[in-house]
């Protein structure tokens, strides 16, 4: 059975050896994930066409979902992810990534500017030029996140 390990680097080797001994196969694309508390992924697996890429989370600008597809915008490319947004919210570092609407998670480090609107909305301009709205539902969460 394939399993993905999401643990700290110190315990990764020991756990991987133990699980391999028990018959598990360690695979980053596995559906089954073993995760450690307060340890967040440093990269995501994304597909661009037929190719599979290892995307550093620090290079991802934002992630959005279109119906059944979840797209990560990274380095000018659009990579399809296999994880749902809810799951990504859990595995991505909450100090870096924040959900700003029902369909978008942004990387705070890639926000270029914030424009507040009177109608309880923020318009974010990201480093790649994309504009993303912080909707009313996430307005106060974002305000708290920024610390204003």
């Amino acid at each position: 059975m394939k399993i993905k390990l999401m643990v700290s680097e110190e315990s990764y080797s020991a756990l991987a050896a133990e699980l391999t001994g028990m018959g598990f196969e360690i695979d980053d694309s596995a559906e089954l994930i073993l995760s450690q508390k307060n340890v967040y992924v440093g990269y995501l697996i994304g597909r661009l066409g037929d190719e599979i890429f290892r995307l550093r989370t620090s290079e991802i600008t934002y992630i959005e979902s279109f119906s059944h597809d979840v797209i990560a915008h990274c380095g000018g490319g659009e990579y399809r992810l296999s994880e749902r947004l809810r799951r990504l919210e859990e595995i991505l570092d909450p100090k870096e990534f924040i959900r700003v609407s029902n369909s978008v998670i942004v990387s705070a480090g890639h926000i270029k500017s914030i424009k507040p609107a009177l109608t309880q909305k923020f318009i974010l301009t990201l480093e790649d030029g994309a504009k993303v709205d912080v909707t009313r539902t996430y307005y106060y969460i974002f305000k708290e996140f920024i610390g204003i």
Binding site: A108, S113, I114, P116, T119, G147, I148
Partner: peptide, 26 residues
């Protein structure tokens, strides 16, 4: 102010901030 906070960084979920909260424009 909000863009100044963005430049300062050190934000994150659950962190207690000593920054004075601003009223929303509305």
């Amino acid at each position: 102010r909000i863009n100044q906070r963005l430049r300062e960084g050190d934000f994150g979920e659950g962190e207690e901030t000593s920054k004075r909260k601003m009223l929303t424009p509305i």
